[in-house]
Structure formats: structure tokens, C-alpha cells
């Protein structure tokens, strides 16, 4: 896309959640989609996120083994934004 409309792969990654939740404005949405047409890497990444959402969206808390639940909760507790 034109330099004044440029969106980088890193920016696409940052915007993927907003894209999938349909909260991007029309201009940003078009820029993301224009990028996806020619960027195989971002296209694959978006597909992976979609698949992840589809799979994890079907998970119930009881589907997760207790040991894994504890591990995940511990990881979330230790996580902090950079």
C-alpha cells in the first residue's frame, strides 16, 4: 500500500484482536485487509488466531485438567504488561 497508508506486520499483529472484534474504524480495517492480501505471514497469523478462538471458545473450565489450570493461573498471576 502507499507509504501514507502503510501498516507494518507488527502493527497488524497489534490490531488483530481489534480487527476480529470488529472495533477498528473503516480506514484501519481496510488497511489491515489490504496488507493481508499480499502478506502471507500476517494472513497465516490471522488464520491461526481465528482457529485458536474457535477451539478455545469451545472449552469449558471443567475441560481443563486441574494441574494445567493451576499452571495457567500461576502464569497469569505472574504476568504483567511490559
Amino acid at each position: 500500500m502507499r507509504l501514507d497508508r502503510e501498516i507494518t506486520c507488527a502493527q497488524v499483529v497489534d490490531l488483530v484482536t481489534a480487527y476480529l472484534e470488529d472495533v477498528l474504524d473503516a480506514d484501519d480495517r481496510e488497511r489491515v485487509e489490504e496488507h493481508l492480501v499480499f502478506c502471507d505471514g500476517c494472513s497465516t497469523y490471522l488464520d491461526q488466531i481465528r482457529q485458536t478462538i474457535a477451539v478455545t471458545g469451545r472449552l469449558e473450565p471443567e475441560d481443563i485438567p486441574p494441574a494445567l489450570q493451576d499452571k495457567l493461573l500461576a502464569a497469569f498471576r505472574e504476568w504483567s504488561p511490559a
Binding site: 500500500m1 470488529d22 477498528l24 473503516a26 480495517r29 481496510e30 485487509e33 489490504e34 492480501v37
Partner: peptide, 20 residues
């Protein structure tokens, strides 16, 4: 409503941007 609702399509000049 661009990029939200509606039937989205290309004019001739838009075609190269969306090759699929």
C-alpha cells in the same frame, strides 16, 4: 457501511489491490 456492513466489491481500478 464500508468495512462493516454491506456488499463489498471492486471497481476496475480496485481489482489489483485485492487479487485473490
Amino acid at each position: 457501511d464500508p468495512c462493516r456492513r454491506g456488499i463489498h466489491a471492486c471497481r476496475v481500478q480496485d481489482v489489483p489491490f485485492w487479487l485473490g
